[in-house]
Measured scan of single mutants.
Amino acid sequence: MTSCHIAEEHIQKVAIFGGTHGNELTGVFLVKHWLENGAEIQRTGLEVKPFITNPRAVKKCTRYIDCDLNRIFDLENLGKKMSEDLPYEVRRAQEINHLFGPKDSEDSYDIIFDLHNTTSNMGCTLILEDSRNNFLIQMFHYIKTSLAPLPCYVYLIEHPSLKYATTRSIAKYPVGIEVGPQPQGVLRADILDQMRKMIKHALDFIHHFNEGKEFPPCAIEVYKIIEKVDYPRDENGEIAAIIHPNLQDQDWKPLHPGDPMFLTLDGKTIPLGGDCTVYPVFVNEAAYYEKKEAFAKTTKLTLNAKSIRCCLH
C-alpha cells in the first residue's frame, strides 16, 4: 500500500463567511444568496454554514464600524470581559468565536472560507496562513488546477512579526479568498463568478477527501510576504508620492531593483532599492491607505505537500 500522510479526520463542519468587511460585496451577495438557497454549497455528509460576519458594517456598506474585524481574533480580544464599552467588532468577534470556535479547541469548525474583495488587480487569490499544512496545500492545488487556465495565486502570510489574527483563524483550516479588482461597494459579475467557482472547487475537494480519495504528493507556487511598504510621506505625515503608473495593476509581476515604484507630484520617480527582485501584491489597495500600506513585497517559492487521505471509520 502506498505510504501517505493521513489527515486527522474527515471534514464535518464548514463555514463560509461574507461581510467580514461590509463594503466587499461579492461575499456579502453570495452568502445572502446561499442563506436563501444553499443547494449549490451542500455536499453529502458535510455541514456547510453561510454566515454574515459583520452585519452592521454590511448594512452601512462600510469596511467596519469601530475597528477591523479581520485583525482582532487574538486571545487578548477574544478574552476581554464582555461589555457595551467594547468596540462593536470586538464584541462581534467574541460572538463569532462562540459560534464557530472556540479558537484553538477541538470544537472549532474544521474549515472557514472568508470571502473578500480587493481594489487591487490580484485576480483569484487564496490566502494561506501555514506553509506546513498538507491538507490546505492539497486543497489549493486542486482549486488552482480546477480553475486553469484562469490564474489563481496563493498568498502566504506566515511571518515572524506580522500577526494578522484573522476572522477565519478560529477554524482548524483557515482559508482566505480574495478576488479583484473590484471597487468597494460595487458588485461585478465576473468577480462574483470567479469567487463562486473557487468555493465550488473547494467544496468538491472536501467531498472527494471525505469519500476516501487519496491525493498524491503535489507542489504549489506561493508568494510569501516579506514586508509592507508605506507611501513616501512629508514631515507632516502626508502622502508625498503615489503608486507609479508602471507599478499600478502589476500585482504578482516581478519588481526589480531600480524599477519605478512611486511618483511625486513634481514628476520624480522613486525606484525600488535593494538588490532583490520582489513580487508586489495589494498594490494601491483602497482599504490600506489608513493602514499606511502602499503594497506588500513578496518572494516566490514552492511548497510541497505529502499525499493525504481521509481516515475512514
Rank of each mutant, 00 (worst) to 15 (best):
E227W: 05
A15Q: 05
N304R: 14
Y142G: 03
Y64H: 10
I72P: 10
K49L: 09
E285N: 13
Q138P: 01
E235R: 10
H5Q: 14
T302I: 14
P183Y: 02
D107W: 11
N210Q: 07
T125R: 03
E238L: 07
E9W: 06
T2F: 07
F140N: 06
A189S: 12
I6K: 14
A165L: 09
G176A: 14
D249W: 00
I111K: 04
G185K: 04
D193S: 11
G22L: 08
E9I: 02
I111Q: 05
L162Q: 15
K59A: 13
Q248K: 05
G273H: 09
G79N: 15
D251A: 03
L126W: 04
Y88I: 07
K60C: 11
L265A: 12
L247T: 02
K224S: 07
S131M: 09
D193P: 06
N246V: 07
K144A: 11
K197E: 10
I225G: 12
C218S: 00
N77C: 12
Y231M: 05
K253Q: 12
C152K: 03
Q138G: 05
A241C: 07
T298L: 00
S120D: 00
K200W: 07
Y88W: 12
P87H: 10
D110K: 02
S169F: 02
Q250A: 12
P271W: 04
E214H: 09
E221L: 05
I137R: 06
Y142T: 03
Y142E: 03
L69T: 06
G185I: 02
L78C: 10
K213T: 12
G19T: 03
Y142W: 07
T302E: 08
I143P: 03
T166Q: 11
E221M: 00
V28T: 15
P245W: 02
N117T: 15
C124H: 04
M198V: 14
C218W: 01
M122E: 00
H33L: 06
L150Y: 09
H256Q: 11
F135W: 03
I16P: 03
N284G: 15
D68I: 03
I225V: 15
H313I: 15
L46Q: 04
I16D: 03
P216K: 08
L30S: 05
E227L: 04
E36D: 12
Q182R: 05
L247E: 02
A296Q: 12
I52E: 01
K59N: 12
A294L: 05
E95Y: 10
E158L: 05
N23Y: 00
D107S: 12
V179S: 03
K49A: 10
V281D: 02
L128M: 07
G27R: 01
P160T: 12
V175N: 00
P149I: 04
T44H: 12
T44L: 08
E89P: 04
K268L: 08
L192R: 02
L272N: 09
P216C: 03
D104F: 13
P254L: 01
F73Y: 10
M122T: 15
P217H: 04
Y289K: 14
F215C: 00
R91V: 14
I137H: 03
I52F: 03
D251V: 03
G176I: 14
S83K: 13
C218Y: 06
E178Y: 15
Q182F: 03
L187N: 08
F262K: 04
L187D: 01
P217E: 12
V283F: 04
I206L: 11
F73A: 11
F51E: 04
I137V: 07
P151V: 03
G38Y: 10
K224L: 01
P257T: 02
Q138N: 02
T62G: 11
E9A: 11
H5L: 12
G27I: 03
H313M: 01
C152D: 04
H159S: 14
A39D: 13
R43P: 06
E158Y: 02
G45I: 04
I127E: 01
I239H: 00
E211R: 12
S108I: 09
I11C: 08
H5K: 13
E89A: 02
T166A: 13
P217R: 05
Y289G: 15
N121Y: 00
W252F: 15
E285Y: 02
E158M: 02
K32I: 01
T277M: 08
E36K: 13
A296F: 08
Q182G: 00
P55Q: 11
M139L: 07
N77A: 12
P245R: 01
M139N: 00
D249H: 06
T145A: 12
S3M: 11
Y279L: 04
K224Q: 10
K81R: 13
R63N: 09
T145G: 06
G18P: 03
A305H: 01
I226M: 12
R309K: 15
T125K: 00
R132K: 14
R132M: 10
N117D: 09
F73W: 11
N121L: 02
M195H: 01
N77I: 13
I157L: 13
A305N: 06
Q184I: 09
W252D: 02
K80V: 13
E40A: 02
I239D: 04
E36L: 08
P232G: 05
P217I: 01
V186E: 05
Q184W: 10
A240H: 09
N70R: 08
I96G: 06
G267M: 06
D275Y: 07
P260T: 05
I41R: 02
V14F: 02
A202K: 02
A202Q: 00
H10Q: 15
N37M: 07
P271G: 08
L203S: 01
I111E: 04
K144T: 10
N54W: 03
P183N: 07
L86M: 14
K300N: 01
S105T: 13
K291R: 14
K228V: 10
A241I: 07
I52N: 05
V179C: 13
P260M: 00
I65Q: 08
V179Y: 03
H207T: 15
E76P: 12
I127C: 07
L147M: 15
G79F: 14
C61G: 14
Y173E: 02
F17K: 00
A39L: 11
I65C: 10
S131E: 11
K49S: 10
I177K: 06
Y164E: 15
V58T: 12
Y231P: 04
E178Q: 15
D130E: 07
Q248A: 07
M139K: 04
I41D: 02
N236F: 10
T145S: 12
R92V: 11
E129N: 11
Y223L: 00
F51V: 10
P217K: 06
Y173S: 07
Y153L: 06
L312W: 13
C124Y: 03
A240R: 11
I225A: 15
L126F: 07
R196K: 10
Y231Q: 01
T167P: 15
E9N: 15
R196Q: 06
Q42H: 12
F209Y: 14
D193Y: 15
H201G: 08
E178N: 15
V278C: 09
I157K: 15
H98A: 13
E290I: 08
D66E: 11
I157V: 15
E47R: 10
T299G: 07
C276P: 00
I239M: 08
I225C: 15
Y231W: 11
V175R: 00
D110E: 07
L156S: 04
D230G: 09
E235S: 11
K228I: 10
F295Y: 03
G18I: 01
M198G: 00
I143G: 04
V179L: 07
G79T: 14
H201W: 01
L136S: 01
T44R: 13
S83V: 13
R91P: 07
T20H: 08
G45S: 11
L192S: 07
K228P: 08
H33S: 10
P174E: 10
M139T: 05
D193K: 10
N97Y: 10
Y279G: 05
H313L: 09
P160K: 11
K228H: 12
T125E: 04
L136W: 04
E8Y: 15
V278H: 00
Y173R: 08
H33F: 06
C311D: 13
I270V: 10
H10G: 12
V90S: 09
N210S: 06
G123I: 05
Q94E: 10
T44V: 09
Q138R: 05
N304M: 12
E227P: 06
V154P: 04
H313Y: 13
N284Y: 03
N304V: 11
C311V: 15
I225E: 15
P55R: 10
E129S: 10
F209I: 01
F295T: 00
M195I: 02
D230N: 11
I157Y: 12
V186I: 11
H208K: 14
P260V: 01
G22T: 08
L35S: 10
R56K: 14
T2Y: 09
R63S: 12
K80S: 13
R91F: 12
H33M: 06
T118P: 02
F262A: 04
K172G: 05
H21F: 07
N37S: 09
S120M: 05
L265P: 11
G123V: 04
